[in-house]
Design a protein around this nucleic acid. Structure first.
Lengths: 148, 148
DNA sequence: CGCAATTGAATTGTGCGCTATGTATATCGC
DNA sequence: GCGATATACATAGCGCACAATTCAATTGCG
């Protein structure tokens, strides 16, 4: 049997995910301007607003990002006085990240964003939920192949 | 009516897209090692293998990427002798990108990748197609809000 | 108790991806 | 024909995202 032809990019699920990810980031950018945050920074705050005082490792686990990505990102936020970083006393390998009053106060500015995003997607909540679950399941299978 | 609570990241479709995009890139990385290509570079080749001799503008349009991203990327491929870049004689604003023999020959090395990716997703073709179409439609709506 | 293995964070280097800006070229309207 | 406008590309700067590596701290085992 002959090998299948190379797919065109429009036939590829991975390209759909890749390019839609960029579209989301572009969509968020003007809406995060008031907070002066980038999209990955906003994700960090979403984690901290839900539960303050987490380790760099926990942040990386939740966001599926490397410490090489998390550490510089959190340092930039620290430099702006939005979070603090300090070594855990019980286990000095760990660095704990906490919100400052200013970082916590950003949440009020962010309150309108989720609705704007839902409207921007033009999707019903059920459809969005179904797609979200499928993507999480897909992410899990892709990472499982890597042996993570 | 009270404003809704901030969502957790696991409730956000955009985070699902964002993190699954990274998972796809991680999944591709070892499979592209034989070609010595990154995932975005591979996407450029997929466009060129389908139809050689395209402009930087056309590449950017197809991949939904800025010329600030495409130009350095293609220059790196040119430096390795995989493509050539040259000004269009009819319209000197345009730069045309063509495969070299070496760049064309890479396609043979890439033939096994699409099946590996399909297997890695663990999804049926119908399910993958449905998700792909929904993501393209979503991308279109998100970009439409930006006025692009 | 000492050492090997493991873990967590940080650093360095590289490749994006985007914004803003500048330059050159082409098009359009008067 | 000329000036204004638009287009295409390139550059600079910045923020990621990851791999590889290093270092410090912790854990587990003999």
């Amino acid at each position: 049997m002959a090998a299948p032809k190379m797919p065109t990019i429009d036939q590829m699920l991975c390209f759909a995910v890749y390019s839609t990810g960029h579209a989301f980031t572009r969509f968020y950018k003007p809406r995060l301007e008031a907070l002066d945050l980038t999209y990955p920074q906003y994700l960090v705050f979403l984690v901290l607003w839900e539960r303050d005082d987490v380790t760099v490792k926990a942040l990386g686990d939740k966001l599926f990002l490397d410490s090489g990505t998390i550490t510089p990102l959190v340092k930039r936020l620290e430099a702006r006085g939005l979070v603090t970083r300090r070594r855990d006393e019980a286990d000095e390998r760990q660095v704990r990240v906490q919100l400052t009053a200013e970082g916590r106060a950003l949440q009020a500015k962010a309150e309108a964003i989720p609705l704007a995003v839902i409207e921007g997607t033009g999707m019903g909540l059920d459809a969005a939920d179904a797609m979200r679950r499928e993507l999480f399941a897909l992410r899990e299978r892709l990472d499982a192949v890597l042996g993570e």
